[in-house]
């Protein structure tokens, strides 16, 4: 947390010192990403509901609903989240617990109400299709700045029409389902407006677009809608967030294996 605050201050100072200071594109990219991260985090805890609408190119649709709780720990070096499914009915009550760390691999557990047991998941879980949608788990949650190396490319109009954006290229430092991503962060409030995902052969496989940003608690901007389009299959998924609640008093005890069954 302190580090992030510090970075934020440095960033502000740098901005204040004026653009005259020469920066490499790497430094600039890193700086923008760090500032975007700084304004998005530090919220303590958060509860929100999500509804996914899956859509095929021919127009068939299907939905998934879940509630999500997130808690920041250790000054932002650790994030815990619990996702509990509500729909489809046959996975109601199924809960996915994630412990995400800055500097080591995440841990994930799934609680299966049908057998009343918790299973630890080992595998490529964060990058694969999430419950059949076009989202991977890693696409839905806040991305840790340290997981990528950033490169500022240019400033240009945001692809979703949300004003002006910094365009960054980011390359995963650890294993990921993608080889590279392009991210558009608006210049006005440093919000992620769009992400383009590229696979190992350099082909754009998916595009994520945010919309309906609202500010909560006078500070935190969150999108109401995230639209993921898969360019390989023509399928898409719309993820709509509702009922954002910040600082609800969640504690680490709400994010344990025992808590999942509740």
């Amino acid at each position: 947390m302190i580090l992030r605050r510090l970075l934020f201050v440095i960033a502000m100072l740098a901005a204040g010192a004026g653009a005259a200071l020469a920066q490499t594109p790497e430094q600039r990219g890193q700086q923008i990403a760090a500032r975007a991260d700084a304004v998005a985090t530090g919220f303590g805890d958060l509860q929100v509901s999500g509804e996914m609408t899956l859509r095929t190119p021919t127009g068939a649709t299907s939905s998934r609903r879940f509630a999500m709780k997130t808690l920041e720990l250790g000054g932002g070096r650790e994030t815990r989240s619990l996702l509990v499914f509500d729909w489809p009915g046959d996975i109601r009550g199924t809960a996915l617990l994630t412990h995400a760390f800055d500097n080591r691999q995440d841990s994930q557990w799934l609680y299966l109400p049908s057998v009343g047991r918790v299973k630890k998941i080992t595998g490529g879980g964060r990058s694969g299709s999430f419950v059949g949608s076009e989202f991977a788990y890693e696409d839905m949650v806040e991305q840790d700045v340290a997981s990528f190396s950033h490169l500022w490319l240019r400033d240009e109009p945001c692809p979703n029409g949300a004003g002006r954006c910094h365009l960054l290229q980011r390359t995963p430092r650890y294993s990921s389902g993608y080889a590279q991503q392009l991210v558009w962060i608006d210049t006005a409030a440093l919000r992620y407006q769009a992400v383009a995902y590229f696979n190992r052969r350099g082909q754009r496989s998916k595009t994520l677009t945010m919309s309906g940003y609202r500010q909560y608690g006078g500070r935190y901007w969150r999108p109401a809608r995230m639209t993921m389009v898969n360019h390989l299959t023509g399928k898409s998924t719309i993820l709509e967030w509702s009922g954002y609640r910040f600082n609800t008093g969640l504690r680490p005890g709400d994010f344990t294996r025992e808590a999942m069954a509740r």
Binding site: I91, Q108, L110, L112, S114, I121, G123, G124, Y137
Partner: peptide, 13 residues
């Protein structure tokens, strides 16, 4: 369904 969900959550991209 839940067995399948567990499996799907584990599958790579």
């Amino acid at each position: 369904a839940q067995a399948m969900m567990l499996y799907e959550l584990s599958l790579p991209a």
